[in-house]
Design a protein around this nucleic acid. Structure first.
Lengths: 243, 243
DNA sequence: TCAAAAGTGTTCTTATTACACCCATGG
DNA sequence: CCATGGGTGTAATAAGAACACTTTTGA
């Protein structure tokens, strides 16, 4: 039987890219480092994995400790294992991203989150360690995934307007979308339930409120249909996403 | 400054899902385990990562030792970190898949590959450890990736016929494709260079030989075009891929 | 009555699908 | 001359893209 002591071992961490969406702006949760190395830099929240702890459990635990939230969308993205990525020695890190409703997020007293701040994704740069690379990998994964699975709703409050939904997609995909085509496509999938409620106290025509209907989505899938907010395939070199 | 000794450490391996394509059949390289645990079972070839070795380098090294091949398409897929996945203790494994031309593959004398065998992907099951899960994750990744990037060509010899290319896609995607529509789509992308050569000594009309043209692909990309062998979006519940 | 965002259809263009016969070669 | 796989086009349908005005509300 194999003896593991014969082989090199490494410290292992999980790093979390926690996305939130706050009225028109996609945000990521960052912490300001209070200690060396990279003291004063912004960094992704992460922590060490325990020896008797499954990786996925570690990611959930760290996320819960940071945000106070459980039952949150969480997905492993990539593992970063350059020998020199951490100045203190070899640390392999497994990156996860998660999607949370900012309104549910509470800064828990004991947690690292005391120093945590929501930053717009467009300002998430010059992070500590190789966190720029990790952030980019997770953001790219989110961009891809949000087009083929209805995970975007994880970022919205239970009741939302179609405009908020469109703004969310525009923020994630970093493109402009056509309002009529977007609505036509989303509504044609028949995944939303109109709540027979509207916005209140807005200085314009109040928008209808919808919720995402998990049952309808299961039906949708069982018909062999595929959620798809598709990328433009136009020959015309545009980086624009069209509907 | 952080002291890593305060945290638990884990042994780390890379496991490789090495795909090859051998006339009509997608294959994966497996080894028969000669030692406990799982003695006699088929397993994915993998090995321990050294303490001073980047993860990606480790994957390349292990692949080269196994196949004698370098400069091969290699992609990290997922990290498996359940505490009980290895009977000898905690071993976190990072799964990679690679695509090689079977014809280039030589069993190198010193290597684990002495016990390596190409198995049809449809028979890759009941593997040791959690290798079924790892294989499935890598196969799924390949399925997705091959639709959006021209990596399929990595599996073919430098000169190939359109029928071989189609068979490759059918083997990976596990669907039947329409010959005329497939050819129309592939040729319309203008990524193949016709070599003005044909098959020889075949008992039927000899097929034209093509090669994949990397320069044409770069042009293609710079026009903003997207390689896409797309999935059917038909409402009709079909699992069939259509053209 | 003004400003602000909600809501709504049609036409044009492009991509996808389905489908069947003749061709070139070796045995 | 037969068996085998190579090679080819068109018509119907479906999806995507472009685009502008009217409605409802609060201030």
């Amino acid at each position: 039987m194999l003896i593991l002591d014969n082989f090199d071992k490494s410290a292992v961490t999980v790093d979390n890219v926690i996305f939130g969406f706050d009225d028109e702006d996609l945000k990521v949760l960052l912490i300001k480092r209070g200690e060396s190395p990279f003291e004063g830099s912004w960094a992704l929240p992460g922590y060490f994995v325990k020896g008797d702890e499954d990786l996925d459990k570690a990611a959930k635990r760290v996320l819960a400790e940071l945000t106070g939230l459980e039952n949150v969308y969480l997905e492993q993205v990539e593992t970063f294992g350059k020998t020199n990525r951490h100045p203190a020695g070899r640390v392999i890190t497994v990156a996860y991203y998660s999607l949370i409703k900012i309104s549910d997020f509470k800064i828990t007293p004991n947690s690292i989150a005391n120093r945590a701040v929501w930053k717009s994704t467009s300002f998430a740069q010059d992070l500590a360690f190789d966190h720029d690379e990790i952030f980019k990998a997770c953001f790219n994964r989110l961009k891809r995934k949000v087009r083929s699975k209805p995970i975007g709703f994880e970022l919205l409050p239970p009741k939302f307007t179609l405009t908020k939904l469109q703004q969310l997609y525009e923020a994630i995909l970093e493109v402009q979308l056509d309002k009529r085509n977007f609505r036509k496509k989303i509504l044609s999938m028949d995944l939303l339930h109109y709540l027979d409620e509207r916005e209140e106290k807005v200085a314009h025509r109040p928008a209808k409120l919808y919720k995402f209907d998990e049952n309808k989505y299961q039906e949708f899938l069982s018909k062999g249909m595929v959620f798809d907010i598709s990328e433009s395939k136009s020959k015309g070199a545009k980086k624009k996403l069209k509907f």
